[in-house]
Design a protein around this nucleic acid. Structure first.
Lengths: 343, 343
DNA sequence: GGTTGGCACTCTCGCCGTCAGAGTGCCAAT
DNA sequence: ATTGGCACTCTGACGGCGAGAGTGCCAACC
């Protein structure tokens, strides 16, 4: 009973089941794959695989379907990411090239990913906490109110209105603002947001006491902008694809839809993966820590401008998923969108 | 055969069917409503209502269910918006008070509406084209590139990067920018976006030829920001509620989910209603022009700061919906969010 | 020892006939 | 116009049946 052949059997089962969505029996396997052995042998192997917990039978006299563990072995050892055709590559590039701003890039990306994989696509907005500061601007907007604008390298703009206590629409005020602008941009410009945040703390102390209070208010607002995780956003597309694959989910698609609306959860799932290089992460069924998504698999990866990873994207689908193709699509889209953002 | 009683029968049928989701027969009606007549009489009325196309029988020996036209009559003539309890009112106000910025207001609103109605909530971002300009800011960001920032009265910030051809990080450049700032803010400040757009056109011609080119580029960018309808956004919540009411949709929830992803469609549906005062609009089943939503009903209304309407919000649910409660919730949420935005 | 063919066994699924229940439509009486 | 009565129809649940698919095991074979 060779280990090797048993794994080939597992691979064949996964492939057939993904394609037909029906439990696959020993006979069907022989028809569709040249395994060079008889049905009885395959049955023995299947019994062994079941023993190992890699496949399971829905009931006595049906074929086998892969378990989460079975898919895991398939993904780790038995499959390779299927390269995308040149035509597809060109289509991806072409579509994303046309984007006019960051919102548009994200929007196109998520739709593209959903239609490529025919699954639910999830794209995180390039995250503040990993991008860096391009510019800080201060705009007095009447009375003691000041608009603090933060512009990041990913093109994102955060604004806060601050009440600074004194009217700045005066010559004195304008001078104060000029000083602040210079100081704040010197302290933060080009820095990753986390660094900028620490750097900011010391700015008020360096300044003349007369403007220190104003500065403190501005710094507080900026730090708000910097750390607020709430500002992280995700965008979804292709939820209708869940309906197509309805039967694949244990109960119904209700819990899945609920989980997808918890953007905080999605952010966390995307976040953990955005950290570790350009590798693909695959979460299969119960490997997912969130109950609502335990009947699904996620394929995610990081993307971002240049060498800095700034966010995550991926897809959510049934565990019965074409992993090689999905992984290829996710990787390709991440690569292209990163390239676009590099400008 | 009094017209009056026939309508009371229709109302009873709608109420029962909404509650039980099962076709209602003549006998069941008598049990649950004091109609003061016999089952046979009710049957005669039902036959008449069926003749008029207001109710239908799924098959010979089942009860009746309302048709779209039946719901229409119910909404127009047989129901009144059910007032919300003081407790609910307070809860709504309290929840929305806590919002920290526009994004948060919209986010809370849509979630609140979804949980109040247990249906899919749709909220349009306060629309640019109906709000007005608070401030325009120009920020040179290195080389010939200029960041044009538009801030609206609804707190929304639009930005565009423009290539103006010449480096503005010089003393001359700064002087040019100062002129432009003054001119642009004078031309647009306080104006509704559409007006601002026409006003902008004449700005370059008023200026010194040396800066006219730069100005033209900036004006183009601003007009982009002003007119781009693409920038209108909608936010959804509660799509999982579709799964609960799954059986209510003719085929499955797939087409509905697809339609909900077409934000352009939703915007149009919300848009037509945002225009006509604070009235509620109800679209029942096939009254909806979009095929994907013809198994649903929409209850929508406008909302916005002060007396200006700036956007629409509403819910999407099965035609078998508790219209009085839903309409009350939509109206209440619109009222409260408008009040919040008035600041 | 691994592999193979054979065979009995089990389980699901679709089909069909039956039956009870719900609800209607119609009619004659009031 | 309303009512009670009655015959009729249709659905949906239930149960039995048979076909088909697939397995597990065993004895034989290389």
């Amino acid at each position: 009973m060779s280990e090797d052949r048993r794994l080939r059997v597992l691979r064949a089962i996964v492939q057939d089941y993904v394609q037909t969505s029906e439990p696959v029996g020993s006979k069907a396997l022989l028809d569709r794959h040249q395994l060079g052995v008889s049905a009885a042998t395959v049955r023995n192997d299947m019994a062994a695989l079941e023993e190992e917990g890699l496949i399971a039978a829905p009931h006595t006299s049906a074929g086998r379907i892969p378990t989460d563990a079975g898919y895991r072995v398939f993904v780790d050892r038995l499959s390779q990411v299927k390269p995308m055709s040149p035509a597809e590559q060109r289509a991806i590039g072409h579509l994303l090239e046309g984007a006019v701003d960051l919102d548009d890039v994200v929007d196109r990306t998520v739709r593209l990913l959903a239609s490529l994989t025919r699954q639910v696509a999830v794209v995180q907005y390039p995250s503040l906490s990993r991008s860096s500061v391009r510019h800080v601007e201060l705009v007095p907007i009447g009375g003691p109110r000041l608009l603090v604008v933060l512009i990041t390298t990913t093109g994102r703009v955060e604004q806060r209105v601050v009440d600074v206590g004194t009217d700045l629409l005066t010559d004195d005020g304008e001078a104060t603002l000029a000083t602040l602008r210079t100081e704040l941009n010197a302290a933060t410009g080009g820095r990753v947001l986390a660094d900028a945040s620490t750097e900011l703390a010391s700015v008020p102390d360096r300044l003349d006491p007369t403007v220190r209070e104003v500065c403190r208010a501005v710094v507080t607002a900026l730090e708000d902008s910097l750390v607020e995780e709430r500002e992280e956003r995700v965008v979804l597309a292709g939820t209708a694809n869940l309906a197509r694959a309805g039967a694949d989910f244990t109960q119904s698609i209700g819990p899945v839809l609920e989980a997808l609306e918890e953007h905080v959860v999605l952010l966390r799932l995307l976040g953990t993966v955005a950290e570790q290089g350009g590798t693909l992460a695959v979460r299969i069924g119960h490997e997912n820590p969130y109950a609502g998504l335990q009947s699904t698999s996620m394929v995610t990866t990081g993307y971002g401008a240049g060498s800095d990873l700034v966010a995550g994207l991926g897809v959510v689908g049934p565990t019965r998923m074409d992993y090689p193709s999905t992984m290829a699509a996710v990787r390709a889209v991440a690569t292209y969108v990163s390239r676009i953002l590099a400008d």
